[in-house]
């Protein structure tokens, strides 16, 4: 599966670097500092991060670092999702210099659900609707000033969003 970037000519400039980082993760043991071109740092589609199973691996593939819990990351999610196929989730932050927000669903087949690039001038707040396979933690990660901050909330799912 390859992504077509025809609609996004601006992304081409980083395609090479992106490919390099994918290769590095494949090798697994090279220091990340050599290849800082994690998807989160540019606007290329972070294919590799979306393929990771666990939330920890997805965050590593996306940002190359880990997040610390912070009460400055706010997440609004229902206690019980009315249907796992459509779970309204919104994330906002009171942190300064937010550059991205990502949302992960811990026990989905692939944890990373959505990544949002927040350019300067855009408010650090996003609302969307996600699928959840079962009751699990939803994790919000806010990137601010080059660091990662997170919060998590368990959402109960009674009808899974992956079933037929």
């Amino acid at each position: 599966m390859t992504t077509t970037h025809d609609g996004f000519p601006a992304t081409r400039r980083l395609m090479l670097k992106g490919a390099a980082s994918v290769a590095l993760i494949g090798l697994g043991n090279l220091p990340f500092s050599v290849a800082p071109a994690f998807a989160a740092a540019n606007d290329k589609y972070p294919e590799d991060a979306f393929k990771q199973k666990s939330d920890a691996d997805a965050v590593k593939a996306l940002y190359g670092k880990t997040a610390e819990p912070s009460d400055k990351v706010k997440m609004d999610a229902p206690e019980i999702a009315e249907n796992g196929a459509v779970v309204p989730i919104s994330v906002s932050s009171t942190l300064e210099n937010v550059t991205s927000i990502s949302i992960l669903v811990a026990e989905n087949p692939n944890a990373l659900a959505a990544f949002y690039l927040i350019p300067a001038g855009t408010l650090p707040s996003v609302a969307n609707r996600l699928k959840m396979a079962k009751t699990t933690n939803v994790i919000a990660i806010v990137e601010a000033g080059g660091k990662l901050y997170s919060t998590a909330k368990e959402v109960k799912v009674t009808v899974g969003g992956c079933g037929g």
Partner: peptide
């Protein structure tokens, strides 16, 4: 109530 809140969110741009 919890469902009512999810509904209000959905009605902002209904499916």
């Amino acid at each position: 109530e919890d469902m009512h809140r999810q509904w209000e969110e959905k009605e902002q741009f209904p499916p």
